[in-house]
Amino acid sequence: MRTNTKISILILLILTIIGCQNSAKKVPMLIKKDFGKWEKENDSLGVELGHAGFDNWIDLLNRTGSIACNDSIPKITLKTDNQIKTVYFRNPCWENFACILIKEKNTIKIHNDSIGKYHEDLYPLDSLTSILRRDIKNNGKNPMLSDSPEKLLIYISYDKNGFENLPNTLNKLTQSYELITNKTDINIWLDEKLDTPPPPPPKELGEI
């Protein structure tokens, strides 16, 4: 009888250990990554944008500017089952600047689901990795592309309504950047797309 009791206890102990091991395997390890954050910056400077709570893109931009002008850094945190990704935006406080000179060739513009370079046609968002790689690897060789990876600036903009795809765009952008550079020091601005006015109509013959 005692032997049977000991065997039962031993089996129960083995099953408990196996169960604990299986439970431990099912719990994924969360990986935390920060994108766009400078090395010496304190985490406390980051202020969550809470992008889902805004009715339109302009309101989100206004909140971004307000955070920047309060000596803080706007950020968005993206969460998946195994990763917490925080994306910091480098938008300046425009109250402190009349203008900032940025060469167009050092920029990539993502508007809605299209990618643009100032001298080229639009590309679909699926082309993001190849477009990024061209500029990052250019190092001044092609005068129409970025001078260096450090000078590359990525603008993200949306129409007034309908920016629900922003988290997906940020995920693709940060994944592509890390894949190419093995770094997380990406420079992203949230921006307002300003439409270029159409050129004036051609003058009629004899018109002064």
Results as ranks from 00 to 15, higher is better:
residue 86 T to A: 00
residue 127 S to V: 07
residue 43 D to W: 06
residue 62 N to S: 12
residue 109 K to Y: 05
residue 207 E to C: 06
residue 133 R to K: 15
residue 101 L to I: 11
residue 190 L to Q: 03
residue 183 K to T: 08
residue 67 I to D: 00
residue 173 L to T: 05
residue 114 S to R: 15
residue 17 I to S: 07
residue 44 S to V: 06
residue 55 D to T: 09
residue 170 L to A: 02
residue 19 G to C: 04
residue 44 S to N: 13
residue 89 F to V: 03
residue 100 I to Y: 12
residue 197 P to I: 10
residue 133 R to I: 05
residue 31 I to N: 09
residue 2 R to C: 07
residue 81 D to I: 07
residue 66 S to E: 13
residue 21 Q to E: 11
residue 188 I to P: 00
residue 180 I to Y: 04
residue 72 S to D: 07
residue 183 K to L: 06
residue 28 P to N: 05
residue 126 D to L: 09
residue 108 I to F: 03
residue 86 T to V: 05
residue 32 K to H: 11
residue 163 F to S: 00
residue 181 T to N: 01
residue 118 Y to L: 01
residue 130 S to K: 10
residue 34 D to V: 05
residue 48 E to C: 10
residue 36 G to T: 08
residue 33 K to W: 02
residue 71 D to I: 03
residue 129 T to H: 11
residue 34 D to Q: 11
residue 59 D to R: 13
residue 207 E to V: 03
residue 202 P to V: 09
residue 36 G to H: 02
residue 15 L to N: 04
residue 5 T to E: 10
residue 159 D to M: 05
residue 54 F to C: 04
residue 105 K to R: 15
residue 71 D to G: 02
residue 27 V to F: 14
residue 15 L to T: 05
residue 24 A to S: 13
residue 12 L to D: 13
residue 178 E to I: 01
residue 95 E to I: 08
residue 118 Y to C: 02
residue 189 W to T: 03
residue 91 N to P: 04
residue 162 G to N: 09
residue 59 D to L: 15
residue 140 G to H: 08
residue 149 P to C: 02
residue 202 P to Q: 08
residue 198 P to K: 10
residue 147 D to R: 05
residue 49 L to P: 02
residue 83 Q to H: 13
residue 83 Q to N: 12
residue 99 C to Q: 14
residue 197 P to R: 08
residue 197 P to H: 09
residue 115 I to Q: 03
residue 50 G to H: 13
residue 130 S to T: 14
residue 175 Q to V: 10
residue 2 R to G: 13
residue 27 V to K: 15
residue 91 N to T: 07
residue 154 I to C: 03
residue 189 W to P: 00
residue 142 N to M: 07
residue 81 D to V: 09
residue 132 L to A: 03
residue 121 D to K: 13
residue 5 T to D: 11
residue 11 I to K: 11
residue 184 T to Q: 08
residue 43 D to Q: 10
residue 127 S to T: 08
residue 49 L to R: 01
residue 142 N to R: 12
residue 170 L to V: 06
residue 61 L to I: 13
residue 124 P to Y: 12
residue 58 I to F: 14
residue 132 L to I: 06
residue 14 I to A: 08
residue 183 K to R: 15
residue 46 G to E: 03
residue 158 Y to L: 04
residue 194 L to P: 00
residue 129 T to C: 05
residue 101 L to F: 08
residue 38 W to N: 12
residue 175 Q to T: 14
residue 11 I to S: 10
residue 61 L to P: 03
residue 183 K to C: 05
residue 103 K to A: 12
residue 164 E to V: 11
residue 166 L to S: 00
residue 132 L to Y: 01
residue 186 I to A: 00
residue 126 D to R: 14
residue 162 G to P: 07
residue 101 L to K: 07
residue 190 L to T: 00
residue 84 I to L: 09
residue 128 L to R: 05
residue 12 L to C: 15
residue 38 W to E: 12
residue 12 L to W: 14
residue 82 N to Q: 13
residue 50 G to Q: 14
residue 19 G to K: 09
residue 188 I to F: 01
residue 52 A to K: 15
residue 147 D to Q: 09
residue 62 N to H: 13
residue 131 I to K: 06
